Simulated scan of single mutants.
Amino acid sequence: MSHATSSLSPSGSHSWLTAGKQLVPGLLLCGAITWVANDLAALPWFSSKGLSALTIAIVIGMLIGNTIYGWMQASADAGVGLSKQKLLRLGIILYGLRLTFQDIDALGMHGVLVDAVVLASTFVLAQWLGKRWLGLDSRTAILVGAGSSICGAAAVLATAPVAKARADDVAVAVATVVVFGTIGTFLYPAFYQWNLAAQWLPLPESTYGLWVGSTVHEVAQVVAAGEAVSTSAADMAVVAKMVRVMMLAPFLIILSAWLARHESVEPATPAESAIGNTANDGKKPLLARITIPWFALGFVAVTGIHSLEIIPQAALSVGTQLDNILLTMAMAALGLTTHVRAVKAAGVKPLLLALILFAWLVGAGLTLNSWL
């Protein structure tokens, strides 16, 4: 018995060591892209345009993925796969370190109501227009809607496991966020200055901040658009944006239940899946078909712990930096596994959907914020 046990132990250790070695090349590649993306994002030209490390990482990843990645794919695939699955989920959980429940009090109930109405209306509009008018598949409509209505690329990544999305679907949705979020970074401050000169609407800095925070896609883009007017506008915009981000967890749970009931999304095949969902469980009972996004619940739990103000500032800083690294690595991995031909195959329809949603966010968001 003891002889059998001792003979198994080295074998088990060897297996773990072999698996670990297989992960190293891909993790190093994603890490290198992350390092470059963070350095570029810190440069004034990129930061002034609201281009975050996440956005830059997927661009670099796609450039490498569509050129030289084929030569190293066999050795790097395992680590790249880990980055876009496990590290992604851990990154979403740690995203809670950026938020507290006190943010809701700071914003006020009218601000929370604006965020909720903007989120719900934008996502519903995305589903109606995307599937019924533009004829997009459900996965693309869901991801573009999530990215536009909540928090850009992070929302797209978090929604992908629930929607059983492919890497190509995710890349298309992220691309729309990058395009129109960047446009918004310039458009919102320009409109504020035009309105200030022409006095079309009463638009104080606080209202402008709420408008930006409740409608602009990415957190970095919100900061850039707010700072272009004033520090106080930026502060209000960030708080509104953080409350909107906090709605990600209940959104994912509701979406999962809705998809399970209506069975409106056909799961991706194992080869296509961006996040490891492969089972077609349409014959299971409703509760068994609901994909519980445990990482979203972890996100809420971390937010709750952060709200208690018991995390030392040093640990909070390290955790936030680690979160940036994890999410950026996930975006790098996504770019590496995305082929331009697949994005081209998606056509102009996802971009058109994102354009309509962007116009809705700008117009309806301004009306709603001014009215309330």
Rank of each mutant, 00 (worst) to 15 (best):
H14I: 06
G152K: 00
P44Y: 13
L210A: 10
L361T: 00
L210P: 07
A260V: 05
I64E: 04
A78T: 00
G135N: 05
V239S: 00
V318E: 11
A175D: 07
Y188L: 15
V348T: 10
L29R: 02
A274H: 02
G298W: 14
T100Q: 02
K84H: 02
V300W: 06
I68Y: 05
S214P: 05
V318P: 13
L361A: 08
K131Q: 01
N277V: 01
G347W: 13
V239M: 10
T207M: 09
F101S: 07
I56H: 12
T320A: 11
A268Q: 01
F180D: 00
A220Q: 05
A163K: 00
G226C: 15
A74Q: 08
W200E: 14
M109I: 09
A268D: 08
A160I: 05
A37V: 14
K241W: 07
L368D: 04
P44E: 14
V162S: 03
L351P: 11
V239K: 10
L201Q: 14
V238L: 06
P44H: 12
A345L: 15
A171Y: 06
T18K: 06
I254H: 07
G50N: 08
T55N: 06
A57L: 04
V219T: 14
Y69P: 01
G184V: 11
G70M: 02
D105K: 01
L54M: 11
S317A: 01
V343Y: 08
D169P: 03
T320Y: 07
Q22S: 05
N280E: 13
S214L: 10
H14C: 04
P10Y: 12
G276E: 02
A301P: 01
W258I: 03
A167N: 07
E309V: 05
L29S: 05
L286F: 15
G70I: 01
A37P: 15
G31R: 04
I58R: 09
G26I: 10
G108L: 07
D235L: 00
W200R: 11
K344Q: 12
I58E: 00
K164Q: 02
T140E: 09
W211E: 07
V340D: 03
L125P: 03
V118R: 10
M72N: 05
V177H: 02
C30R: 11
F123L: 03
V36Q: 02
S370E: 13
I60H: 06
L334S: 06
A233K: 15
L90P: 00
V80T: 01
L297R: 12
N280R: 13
L334G: 00
G108Q: 14
Q73C: 07
G130W: 01
D105G: 03
R89L: 00
N280M: 08
T269C: 03
T337W: 08
D39W: 08
R166W: 03
T328Y: 10
I254L: 11
Q313K: 01
A198L: 03
G31C: 11
K86W: 04
A301V: 04
T34I: 07
L23Y: 07
T320G: 09
F251I: 09
Q102T: 09
L27M: 06
Q313I: 01
A53K: 03
L90F: 10
M236Q: 03
S48Y: 14
P10A: 11
G213I: 10
L187R: 14
A146L: 00
L366W: 10
G145K: 00
G147Y: 01
S7I: 02
L129S: 10
A345S: 12
Y208G: 15
G363L: 14
A4I: 04
I58G: 05
